[in-house]
Amino acid sequence: MIKRILGLLLAGLPFFLPCAADCKATLGIEEIKAYAAAGVKIEHLRKHKTVDWEKIETLFAKDAAKVVEKTDRAKGTDYSRAIAQALEQCRKGLKARVNQQILAKGLQHITVLNIFGLCDALMRGEAAAGPKISAFFEEIRPTFVRRDKDFFASAGKLEKTAELALEHLSQGPSEDLYTYKTDLENIILRTYALSVLYEIMEIEKFLQTNPDKCAVKQMEAMIFYRIIAGRVKRNSADAHNTITRMLDGSYSMMKASILEENLKKGLRGISLK
């Protein structure tokens, strides 16, 4: 009898161990690196003329899905389902250009949520969080490069500031940790605020010539805004309401100057341009 029980337990062990590892609340550094690389690769693949959605789906399932699921559980988001749906729509060719933004920008939102969470963990004295933040950052680095190009003539203003903060954070807890934590948080918020602004500027530009592109830009702006919405709402409920009304409204309501004014109000203390 005992032999049978032991035999069953031993037989179940190979199945139990990966499941237990999978259920761990914290993410391993290798897992994060794979996720970041997958994010960058997906971004690259979806910009091809003929997009291979199956390849993207496989890549996502292999390296990114676990991180997304864990983040959903920890942060109360619902990106696993939303991304799965969006990928299905894309594969079917239904509004692919709009739906792929849920995948692309959703991953960035997941990344930022994880970075902020790891920053708090670092503040609590978890030294291992430092290198993980740097690993996660690789996934959103291209956005920093693009916004540097769009707003600062590729001077690397955003990327360099983030790099400096990451360098200090990766060294683990220190007396002035909070300075670099807020530096990193602020530069992320600034970059995504600029991203929202950029998309609305694009809508203003394409409104007369290419209305189809506006739908894509609107979706991008909406997901970018989700990343910074918490801070904006806390600092100025009025600004948050104005921005959400604008992003949910018609294209004619989208004015970059009004958006910029409200983003400034909402991100009190963080300069935009």
């Binding site: 220190s174 007396e175 002035d176 909070y178 300075t179 670099y180 807020t182 600092n235 100025s236 009190r268 203390g269």
Partner: peptide, 27 residues
Amino acid sequence: PSSSYTYSIDKTGKRFRFKTKPTPGTA
């Protein structure tokens, strides 16, 4: 007023930050 300042002490290499008092209309 209502501004964040980053400061470092001598050559300790440590950087800290504080915010000045806000004006009456500021949240």
